[in-house]
């Protein structure tokens, strides 16, 4: 009995020593800063020679964000609507390119290399710099030559909209690199025997996609949804993020910036909670099988 206890204790100790590094880091770089930022969000902080002087103001900052601040709410709204359109597009597109790349064909490695290139190039500051050229996006389709050629076939009003939309889509495509990779890894784990069996039972490709592929990669769809949401909230060109930075470094308004950060964080958490609820049914039905 005593020996067994020792084994168990040792197992626990070993486990904890493996993750102890992370726990220390969590306390230093996450828990303490989070606690301090809650504290700051109820204070007015003013810098002085002997550090910051805190002055309790209650929920004033939170009320101000919703009532006084004219910039914050519109920024918040545009960030969330952007995300709502962005996430489904990224998911559909990355799924499509993963399906394309999952077949074996000549030059597969080369195409894969190219498809993940945007992960390297079109991320963060490089993309930001490139997009400074055209107002919101790089004009690939919004091009005079293409426009004048296509105008012969399509009415010009419609054409303008189409081309603009195509340009917006290219940004989505550049954003989908990691998600494509995740889907591709998921597709590789599906056993070919399943498709064989479905084919023997007379399923078309369309049917076997919806009955086999789709349910099998449901977990990856969840992972990708979360990843896309998180990355779109923390993107370099995100309005709210810029705004909070401005409050910190231009105005030195630490208390207010912390309050804004918390409002943003809580809203993101609610969104992610909704996604989990939506996926819970499909995931639990899969596990139940």
């Amino acid at each position: 009995m005593k020996f067994k206890m020792n084994m168990r204790m040792r197992h626990i100790l070993e486990g904890y020593s493996f993750i102890s590094l992370w726990i220390v880091g969590f306390l230093a770089f996450m828990a303490v800063p989070l606690g301090r930022s809650i504290y700051y969000s109820f204070q007015n902080l003013s810098p002085s020679k002997s550090g910051l002087i805190a002055d309790y103001v209650g929920t004033q900052h939170f009320r101000a964000a919703f009532t006084v601040d004219v910039q914050f709410l519109p920024l918040l709204q545009s960030t969330f609507t952007n995300m709502l359109t962005h996430v489904p597009l990224v998911l559909i597109f990355s799924m499509a390119s993963a399906l394309l790349l999952n077949r074996s064909f000549r030059g597969r490695m080369v195409f894969r290399g190219i498809f993940f290139l945007p992960v390297i190039i079109a991320s963060g500051s490089t993309l930001k710099k490139l997009m400074e050229q055209g107002a919101a996006n790089l004009p690939i389709f919004m091009d005079y030559d293409l426009y004048s050629t296509l105008r012969l076939f399509i009415p010009s009003d419609l054409l303008m909209n189409l081309l603009e939309y195509a340009d917006a889509l290219t940004i989505v495509m550049w954003d989908a690199g990691v998600q494509t990779l995740i889907f591709l890894a998921g597709l590789q784990t599906i056993s070919p025997a399943l498709y064989e069996a479905a084919k023997c039972d007379g399923a078309t490709k369309w049917e076997s996609f919806w009955k086999i592929t789709f349910p099998m990669i449901m977990p990856m769809i969840l992972v990708n949804t979360l990843f896309t949401m998180v990355s779109s909230f923390t993107r370099a060109d995100n309005g709210v993020m810029d705004y909070i930075n401005q409050r910190v470094f231009a105005d030195n308004d630490y208390g207010y910036a912390s309050a804004l950060g918390w409002i943003y964080f809580v809203l993101i958490f609610i969104m992610i909670g909704i996604v989990f609820l939506l996926f819970r049914r499909s995931l639990s039905s899969m596990e139940g099988r």
């Binding site: 626990i12 993750i19 996450m30 930022s37 930075n245 943003y264 964080f265 993101i268």
Partner: peptide, 27 residues
């Protein structure tokens, strides 16, 4: 390894993935 409070630490791990850096930028 499985140890006491495993679930708590795992949830906190997911939590750190989700916290936007803006929230804790000031502290």
């Amino acid at each position: 390894y499985r140890f006491p409070l495993y679930g708590v630490w795992f949830v906190l791990l997911i939590f750190t993935f989700l916290v936007p850096p803006q929230t804790i930028v000031v502290p």
